[in-house]
Computed example of a mutant assay.
Amino acid sequence: MKKLYINLFVLITSVVIFSCDRERHFYDGPSLVQFANSSSDYFVQSTNNEFEVLVGLTAAASESKTFDIVVVDSLSTAEEGVHFTLESQQITFGAGETLASLSVTGNFDALADGSRTVVFALQDNPDAASFRQTFELNLIQFCEYDQDFLVGEYTVNSEFWGFSYPVNVVAGADEFTYVIEGLYDIGVPNAQDITFVINQVGEIEYTATVETQVAFDANTPVFAADYGPLSVTGTGAVNTCGEFALNLTFTVGAGSFGSYSEVLIKN
């Protein structure tokens, strides 16, 4: 029986050692260049913070190596010199190194009209890997949440009324509550300020909620009949750089006028 245990131990040990040997794998091929990732988001702040695009080698360089990187204009919506700048369009690996980076600086103000995308490509060369030869960078204007910044004068583009006009946004009962002064004070009776709450739904994502509340009286002569108090309720998207896109449903006792978009942009 003792001999059986010894033989069994030797067998198990041999299997474990063999398995470990099979799991060991060391790359011994050529040093090839590729982007470390295929894509990423770059949240550009008012400080015009930099973003480092990482480029790697499959094996450490035996000597200094330099590679060219180009912007693929046909696949990009961001324009170099307008939405971003590059410190250089070359990257260099020193001897023994496997990582280098391309420095990109976004233009915060130029991204006010929406996010942009830039696609980079490694210039054709004999040391190119067969994978990750392009990299897509999404440039997104971003502001830290700050109620003191978000309050102030706005212009509302009202789908309900069909024109734009100024309003004022002030702080509400807490740091996530806001009051829109004058949103419907444009000649309708009993116009009320509208309160909404900002909700944090992710690390940098926010939404808005408008609980049901009376906005004004929908009576003649503005409306065809005296419908009485009109209430609004809805949700919306929040851009912490100063934009609220509220989708509101307008309802009176007789029924609903439907849903409309009210977009507030900070002046």
Score class of each variant (00 low, 15 high):
L248T: 12
I69D: 11
A171E: 07
N49V: 01
G29R: 02
C143R: 08
W161L: 10
E262W: 00
A95P: 03
S158F: 03
L111G: 14
F120Q: 12
H25I: 08
E262R: 01
E87H: 07
G187K: 05
I6L: 15
G162K: 02
G94K: 02
Q90H: 00
L11S: 11
I194Q: 15
F67A: 15
A100M: 03
S31R: 04
S158D: 06
L150M: 12
K2L: 15
Y145E: 07
F176Q: 09
N7Q: 08
F135W: 01
N37E: 12
Y145Q: 08
E87G: 15
K2D: 14
T155A: 09
Q123N: 11
E79N: 11
Y206S: 07
T249G: 04
F9V: 10
V156S: 12
D68T: 09
N168Q: 12
A254L: 09
I6N: 15
G96W: 00
Y27A: 12
S231F: 10
C241Q: 10
S74K: 05
M1F: 11
I91C: 07
D146W: 02
T177P: 00
G81Y: 05
Y227G: 12
I17M: 13
V210W: 07
F9K: 05
N37D: 14
A245V: 09
F108Y: 14
Y206D: 11
R24H: 10
G228R: 06
S88K: 08
F244W: 04
T249I: 00
Q34G: 14
T209A: 15
E63D: 15
E87D: 14
F35A: 11
S40N: 03
E205M: 09
N168Y: 07
S256G: 07
T134L: 04
A171H: 03
Q147P: 01
V156A: 12
R116E: 13
V16F: 13
F250T: 11
G94C: 06
H25T: 13
A237R: 11
S46T: 12
S31F: 01
G228S: 05
P229L: 06
L4I: 08
V82T: 11
F223A: 15
F67M: 13
A173C: 01
N199Q: 10
G228Y: 03
K2Q: 07
Q200L: 04
N125D: 12
E211P: 07
V104P: 10
N107R: 00
R22S: 14
N267M: 05
S103R: 11
E144W: 00
S31W: 00
F216G: 05
A225W: 01
F142W: 04
P126H: 06
A121D: 06
A110T: 02
T66F: 08
D148R: 02
F43A: 11
T117S: 13
P189Y: 04
F223Y: 12
S259K: 03
L102R: 06
S231K: 12
S31T: 04
